[in-house]
């Protein structure tokens, strides 16, 4: 999609043109729904976040100043919606119960490569909510620990330890999942 076309679509959205809103939706909906699925526990929640996010985007698109940051801006809105849902449900579960201290970590990379995105998303969804957020924000989005701590209202040390634990859980789940699939 050319930058000029994006600009035209955004301009149309600012003017509440139906065609422009549909174009923007068609252009970004698949990507954003994938993002919503990663940040939520199930499809139903993801769709709620997805809908709310798009409504917010259409309402606030006139605030967008730079066209080149459109995708980043949209992502931020969806992430924010997901965080709101996370806070509303008080799913601040940062449990350590799943952690096994000794995992054959070198094997997990190979398994991860073989698994599809849907499978990995499901594994991430199975993480405790807090960990799910940290994995998404740190590993996928590249947020710094300090900002994640502020977003989730926890200390920076906690996010680091949670991330460490989340990795372990994910690796453990990858092996379990692979074993099930192999059988």
């Amino acid at each position: 999609m050319k930058a000029g076309n994006i600009q035209k679509i955004v301009k149309g959205c600012v003017q509440h043109k139906g065609w422009a809103q549909k174009e923007l939706y068609d252009l970004y909906a698949p990507k954003m729904l994938g993002l919503c699925l990663r940040y939520t526990k199930n499809k139903s929640d993801a769709e709620d976040v997805f809908q709310e996010g798009f409504i917010k985007i259409f309402e606030k698109i006139h605030q967008l100043k730079k066209m080149e940051t459109l995708e980043w801006w949209m992502k931020k809105i969806f992430i924010n919606e997901a965080l709101q849902l996370f806070k509303q449900r008080k799913n601040t579960n940062f449990a350590h119960d799943y952690i096994s201290t000794h995992l054959p970590t070198h094997e997990t990379d190979g398994i991860l490569q073989r698994l599809g995105v849907e499978e990995i998303t499901r594994l991430i969804q199975e993480l405790p909510s807090g960990m799910q957020m940290i994995v998404n924000l740190y590993i996928i989005e590249g947020y710094p620990h300090r900002e994640i701590a502020e977003l989730l209202g926890i200390s920076e040390g906690t996010t680091k330890s949670q991330l460490h634990d989340a990795r372990k859980i994910l690796q453990k789940k990858l092996i379990q999942n692979y074993q099930i699939l192999s059988e």
Binding site: K22, Y25, A29, P30, K31, L33, G34, L35, L37, R38, E47, F50, Q51, T105, T108, D109, L112, Q113, L115, V117, I120, T121, V135, Y138, I139, I140, G142, R167, L170, Q171
Partner: peptide, 23 residues
């Protein structure tokens, strides 16, 4: 780092087709 990188790469082209009723 490798694990993170691998995981991140999986989501670079992540797309899920939304249901028609959502729009």
């Amino acid at each position: 780092e490798e694990f993170d990188k691998l995981l991140r790469s999986k989501y670079q082209l992540e797309e899920v087709k939304p249901a028609a009723h959502l729009w």
